[in-house]
Design a protein around this nucleic acid. Structure first.
Lengths: 192, 192
DNA sequence: GTCTATAATTCGATAGAC
DNA sequence: GTCTATCGAATTATAGAC
């Protein structure tokens, strides 16, 4: 059972969650140890377990990422791609949700629960938002897969694999991505 | 020192490498244990270490993935995107190089050496091939980043995260990717 | 509430018999 | 060449003092 909630314990709890987000993002799920997290939060492993039960539960609590998508059908249809890229970029560059996404992305490569969480986000949030644009179900899945592949791929290349050299023109990159998403979201797909 | 090479030892060695590729692809770098690999190869941990020195060295030897790109400047400029998507798809669906890519992709999320290998492949192979198309250096980096993000993202979504439901129209997906790569490789990028 | 000390596993790697 | 047996280190998680 969790401890009684005092102001002091709530501060400790928050320090642990913050350290967990940073450490999971920096080292992946397996590479992040409860010792590292506890050390960074100025406490010890026993307290981490007492508050969160297990490493799995700590990860689930610390990394509760979601896409926070606006209702796409209410946006300007001609600028959907550009607006969506701006939305994702704002999330990635945000200190908290950015670390959460990197942590989730890295963990999904080796941790079954993180992978399941990614699948859930895809199906309920992204597919839901794109379906609301009025596409037939089959086509909505196709378009959602395309959007997910391009945006997750970009996050992977930029924030996990660090391919881009310093001095790369980020604005040009984002403009190109915006045009791609515009095609995936609001233009006819090529006949096969 | 490695053992004397006999026909029997070479077969054992190959069984270990094959088991390593399968296990690293299925469980990631940390999730794959030398015990699992040895068991699947019908041998034991000691022999795996004797042949390959360490887990790191085994990974490097078993997963020697490369892009095998043809010289892009010799291909039909109007069909570059389509041809490149077909090339990648053939690699992903190939039993051996497909498992190697998944293993490398999953490992790169948590293993520094695998991440460095990915960066090396990007810089020497993909950037090299795209630079040969005659773009100025800065623009070649931009275009290579875009291609990498879309193709790695697609591999991630399809082969690691398994977003796509059964019954999805794969041909339509590939046609859309071909058009995207065509833009990234052979059309003007949007002004920022 | 928070800590020290330690249990219980599991891992990569080694020693040495045959 | 291949094996059994085991080491030493690291991990998550627990027990119990204060």
């Amino acid at each position: 059972m969790a401890s009684t909630s005092t102001p002091r314990s709530r501060q400790t709890r928050e320090r642990i969650l913050e350290a967990a987000r940073t450490t999971f993002a920096a080292h992946g799920y397996d590479g992040a140890t409860l010792r590292n997290i506890a050390l960074q939060a100025n406490t010890n492993v026993a307290l981490v377990i007492r508050y969160f039960g297990s490493k799995d539960d700590l990860f689930a609590t610390a990394v509760d990422f979601d896409l926070q998508l606006p209702p796409l059908q209410e946006l300007d249809r001609e600028r959907l791609g550009e607006l969506l890229v701006a939305h994702f970029l704002a999330m990635w560059e945000d200190d908290r949700s950015g670390r959460e996404l990197v942590a989730l992305l890295r963990a999904a490569a080796s941790h079954a629960a993180a992978k399941a969480r990614m699948q859930q986000i895809f199906h309920t949030q992204l597919l839901g938002a794109i379906g609301a644009l009025g596409f037939p179900p089959q086509e909505a899945v196709l378009r959602a897969s395309l959007v997910a592949s391009q945006m997750l791929g970009f996050a992977l290349v930029r924030y996990v694999l660090a391919f881009e050299p310093p001095g790369l023109d980020g604005a040009a990159l984002l403009a190109a991505l915006g045009r791609t998403l515009q095609r995936y979201l609001a233009e006819p797909l090529p006949a096969r």
